[in-house]
Simulated assay, not measured.
Amino acid sequence: MKLLHLGDLHLGRSLGDFDLLEDQRYILDEILAIAGRQQVDGVLLAGDIYDRPVPSEGAVRLLDYFLNRLAEAGIKVFMISGNHDSDERLNFGSSFFEARGIYIAARYQGELYHRCIDGINFYLLPFVKASQVRHFFPDEEIESYDQAVKVVLRHAGIDPKACNVLVAHQFVAGSNLVPELAGSESAAVQQVGLVEQIGADNFAAFAYTALGHIHRPQKAGGEQVRYAGSPLKYSLGECNDEKSVPLIGIDGTGNVAVELLPLKPRRDLRHLTGRLEQLLSRENLQDTDDYIYVTLTDEEPRDNAMGIIQGYYPNTVKLDYRNSHTMAMVQKDVFRVEELRSFDELVGDFYRLVYGQDISEEEMAVMREIGARAGVVDETD
């Protein structure tokens, strides 16, 4: 069986003031073309399908278009929700979709979603928090995300001798290595001391684990536990990334082969650094339709610099300065951010960023306990 592994589509996302729906449709069409050329049997969609819990009309239409094209081609879809998705919205019509070969697990309800197709067991685990799992297993010790996933898998009755595939959306680290992050992910995870971290050893019973949640494509504990990464560059930290889609070849005995197929976007995202005249010189002007982040090194601010640059690069997203003045400000202030804000404030901000709501007192208590164990918060506070 051949499978494509996708994650973090973030349909409906913007880049600065630029709507990315046309760019997202372009890359989905490229993925559909790859699926056709490779004659794939299924697509694994590992969460964060939409960029926000209440997606725009355009984002909903785009997902409908993509799923219909896959169904028309006879390609099965295995889709889960991520932390950016509304489980209720993504789950709507799931029983109807299953008749067309589209399998959706948008909400964990006490059992790990399982379907056996052509001798391969597909398990779907939507994004879960410790509090959600504790609701179904009140007698289990569940204080961390890692413990929550362990409990879910232990109660799923998985046969380690069978050929099993898992689709999940969690922060997974393998061999004591933290995944390489991009954009806002880096700051958010560092603020809370990696409390979301899941060990890759949880997935030993699976021939392949298709992960979502991290935008940079990478392994998380061997070839068989992998982040597909987002299909497009969504932040400055991803400018140098090479986007791809993993093609998974798997047989009924659990043998797996992984090939990364490159993706070429409608517009690239690039970071230009230098003096204004230098960046706009004839020899440096290229691919002017790309999305551009500009860092000017001129010692003094330039009048209407953004307008001037957009005259050459109309899709310029952001402009900032890096010179002796800005570097002095960074050295003076950046190291005081942590000491000026409490652990609770940092955790609360991170929780609102990821989940779009305030953290409960119960969950904050768990965070404080984990922080105390890690030595990042004083137990006497």
Rank of each mutant, 00 (worst) to 15 (best):
L4H: 00
G7L: 01
L15Q: 00
D23W: 04
Y26V: 00
A33W: 04
R37V: 09
Q38H: 01
Q38K: 01
Q39H: 10
Q39S: 11
Q39T: 07
G42K: 00
Y50P: 05
R52L: 05
A59I: 14
L63Y: 07
D64T: 15
Y65D: 15
L67F: 07
L70C: 01
I80T: 15
S81F: 04
G82N: 10
S86M: 12
E88C: 03
R89P: 07
R89M: 11
R89F: 14
N91V: 08
F97C: 04
A105H: 01
Q109H: 09
C116G: 03
D118T: 00
N121Y: 00
P126M: 09
V128D: 01
K129I: 01
Q132K: 10
F137E: 01
D139E: 13
D139R: 11
Y145S: 10
A148G: 13
R154E: 12
D159H: 01
N164S: 05
H169L: 14
Q170E: 15
F171G: 01
A173C: 14
A173S: 15
A173F: 11
S175V: 09
S175A: 11
L177N: 11
P179A: 02
E180F: 14
L181C: 08
G183N: 05
E185R: 03
A187N: 09
Q190V: 12
Q190L: 13
D201L: 11
D201N: 14
N202A: 10
F203L: 11
A205T: 06
A205N: 13
A205F: 14
F206N: 13
H213C: 12
I214K: 14
P217Y: 02
A220E: 05
G222N: 08
Y227D: 06
P231G: 13
P231Y: 15
Y234W: 06
L236S: 03
L236V: 10
G237W: 12
C239M: 07
C239I: 11
D241S: 08
V245K: 03
L247C: 03
I248H: 00
I248C: 01
G249H: 10
G249L: 04
G249S: 11
G252R: 14
V256L: 05
A257H: 12
L261I: 14
P262N: 08
P265R: 02
G274F: 10
E277H: 12
L280F: 06
E283G: 01
T288I: 06
E299T: 09
R302T: 10
G311I: 10
Y312S: 07
N315I: 02
T316Y: 03
L319F: 06
D320Q: 06
Y321E: 04
Y321C: 04
H325T: 13
K332H: 08
F335G: 01
R336Q: 12
V337H: 12
V337P: 02
E339C: 00
L340T: 11
D344G: 04
E345R: 05
G348A: 07
G348N: 06
D349T: 09
L353D: 11
D358Y: 11
D358P: 12
I359G: 00
E361V: 13
V377R: 09
D381K: 07
